[in-house]
Design a protein around this nucleic acid. Structure first.
Lengths: 197, 197
DNA sequence: ACTGTTCTTGATTGGTCGGCCAAAAATATG
DNA sequence: CATATTTTTGGCCGACCAATCAAGAACAGT
């Protein structure tokens, strides 16, 4: 086996990361090849020959982001105590809007921008949402076992509620200047789950 | 004062409505002037001379949509009994995703697509979100007075929670095939507010 | 019928887009 | 060094975009 040829001048993970930040901030359609070349250091020809074009590069970055979401779900599942971890996950959406305005969650952004017509992206987002929902459900069960929340509640639908809540926080945070109001909303949602004293 | 001149060949409300449906479905950037001419019956020149261009037409449609949201908020405020009206408002997001896939809420869509850089749109969305939040808070107070939900909860942060929840439902519904799972999430959120028997 | 005004028409314009390609550059191997 | 292989380079292409504008059309008033 000959192993000849010019070596690649880039680290793939860095290119994916740079492109992901562009798509994350601007969305798919509004990200031009020029934006991508500036963010990755690659020229259009290299993007085309190495990844197959803008669309394929986007799918790669979305998969990269979804892998991060799965990791967050695993951390939720393993966290102890569970309730503070759930709260940190929700408040994280509010903090992200403050630290990095205009980005939100790339899964939700993709769902809003191009999910009716794009089956590939839909499947990635659907699976990532399910991973997060499962992680939240496991954390809720752990919290129930530790007496942090009411044990008479069904964990699965509440996990779906919290997933929708965190996606909604990413959306409303874009128009809400005061982060405290959103943290209050998080605490309201979690207080309603606590046992009555 | 002379009132001469060729009469307009369109009804403004119909044009706004047609353009709103295009922007609602595709978003701002992905809506081409061609889409708009087909949906409104106007040609590019008329759009330009009558509304000032794509951007101004979008702002008009967004204001139209925001007016509908304010009306929904008023109906929430006046509804009796209040809790079923709140539930219907939330379930409406799930039903909308089933009946009209890929549209979601135009306020949330706009927030996700272009709010960092667009102050005009941000203000419209921010105000509409506040209207909805106020309507939800009033409905929650009414529900508390009627004993439908716990009276020890603070209505305002819970209204913000429900606003984020409904926006999140619009997002997650785009990737979730089964509406029942989302209705269960709505009921989970509302059950947690009910008084303990 | 004539004039002034307003609206509509549809082609044009300048610009940007994603995709593509041929040549140059950079390596490993013989 | 010579060759084969792979990557990079940077400009080019047709397509589409929003915006514009000059000419035509449809009215009210005189």
């Amino acid at each position: 086996m000959t192993r000849a040829g010019r070596p690649r001048g880039f680290v793939e993970a860095q290119v994916i990361g740079g492109a992901r930040d562009v798509f994350w901030l601007r969305g798919y359609a509004a990200s031009s090849l020029r934006d991508l070349t500036e963010a990755t250091g690659l020229l259009p020809g290299s993007i085309y020959s190495s990844f197959g074009g803008k669309r394929d590069l986007f799918v790669r970055t979305l998969e990269d982001y979804a892998a991060g979401a799965r990791q967050a779900a695993d951390e939720l599942r393993a966290a102890a105590p569970a309730l503070p971890a759930i709260r940190a996950f929700l408040v994280g959406a509010v903090d992200a809007a403050r630290v990095s305005p205009g980005r939100g969650c790339m899964l939700g952004n993709t769902a809003v921008e191009l999910l009716p017509e794009d089956d590939t992206a839909r499947e990635i987002v659907r699976k990532a949402f399910h991973d997060l929902e499962d992680g939240l459900a496991a954390a809720l069960v752990n919290a129930q076992q530790d007496g942090e929340i009411r044990s008479d509640l069904d964990a699965c639908p509440h996990a779906r509620q919290l997933l929708a809540l965190v996606q909604g926080l990413h959306v409303t945070a874009r128009a809400e200047a005061d982060p405290h109001r959103l943290v209050d909303a998080v605490d309201a949602a979690l207080d309603a789950l606590r046992p009555i004293v």
